[in-house]
């Protein structure tokens, strides 16, 4: 269970701890646990933490670290010691949130332009595809690359598809597929994922106390809505923001 880790520099002001190169829930839990450990007892100079599928990147202010440094050697060496301490103190398994967050998705062609070609390729009926996509409970493995972009895994083998060769403009709320992952675009952006539907929910609200709706370790389940429901949701959201 305790996969060996490796620490390496990301330049002279950041380091990365990596636990292998495979996507596993146990690794994800370990990362959350080390993240919390560093968050709760940060070393002086710690600026930011970026957890990912099987790594945690640590950004620091070298001069602040230097001030606190007691040992000889580089600032980076000292940071590595601090990270080893945090790993040693972290628990192997952090608790996942028990609550499953339900996300409405409209799979109609207007919102999921790539669904039909995926169904043809996979020889699946639309309904069958939707059933497979909505059956699983997904784990949020990471929020990143864009603010609030939510990476969910892992996808059922029957609906795995490759990324597009060329990115296209993707609308906010789009639900995409790429390999073993399904993800939610928080706002409109160029993207290479195959788009199968759209959610009327907003996943990034910059001025909310917590700007993102989902966080690493959360559980997610999709459920289908009709085009009419989609438009009603949107209308409601617009009225709310107008008030």
């Amino acid at each position: 269970m305790d996969k060996a880790h490796k620490i390496f520099p990301l330049g002279d002001a950041a380091a990365c701890i990596q636990w292998g190169q495979t996507i596993e829930e146990s690794t994800s839990r370990k990362i959350i646990s080390v993240y919390r450990q560093l968050r709760e007892s940060p070393f002086p100079g710690l600026k930011d933490l970026v957890p990912a599928y099987c790594s945690l990147s640590i950004y620091y202010d070298p001069l602040q670290v230097r001030k606190a440094q007691s040992k000889e050697g580089t600032i980076y060496d000292f940071v590595c010691c601090k990270l080893e301490d945090a790993i040693a103190l972290s628990s192997d398994e952090s608790e996942d949130s028990k609550q499953v967050f339900r996300v409405p998705v409209c799979y109609e062609p207007e919102y999921g332009p790539d669904l039909e070609s995926i169904c043809n390729m996979k020889r699946l009926e639309r309904e069958e595809f939707i059933r497979i996509h909505t059956d699983s409970v997904y784990r949020v493995y990471m929020v990143g690359f864009l603010p609030g972009f939510t990476y969910l895994g892992t996808l059922d083998d029957r609906i795995r598809v490759q990324r597009k060769d060329q990115p296209v403009l993707v609308e906010a709320g789009s639900i995409g597929l790429a390999g073993y992952q399904t993800g939610i675009y928080p706002f409109s952006s160029p993207g290479g994922w195959q788009i199968i539907g759209r959610t009327p929910l907003r996943f990034f609200e910059p001025y909310a106390e917590v700007p993102v709706r989902l966080q690493m370790g959360d559980q997610v389940k999709f459920y289908p809505i009709t085009g009419l429901e989609m438009r009603e949701w949107k209308l409601q959201a617009e009225t709310e923001s107008a008030n």
Binding site: A14, V50, Y53, C54, S57, Y59, F145
Partner: peptide
């Protein structure tokens, strides 16, 4: 598998050309 990057990170793009990430790099 996606992993952290920083200002100054040099990535190799699929075409064989590098990119240096600058201040507005993704996480």
């Amino acid at each position: 598998v996606s992993s952290g990057v920083g200002f100054g990170t040099i990535q190799l793009l699929p075409g064989g050309q590098p990119i240096v990430l600058m201040a507005d790099h993704q996480t």
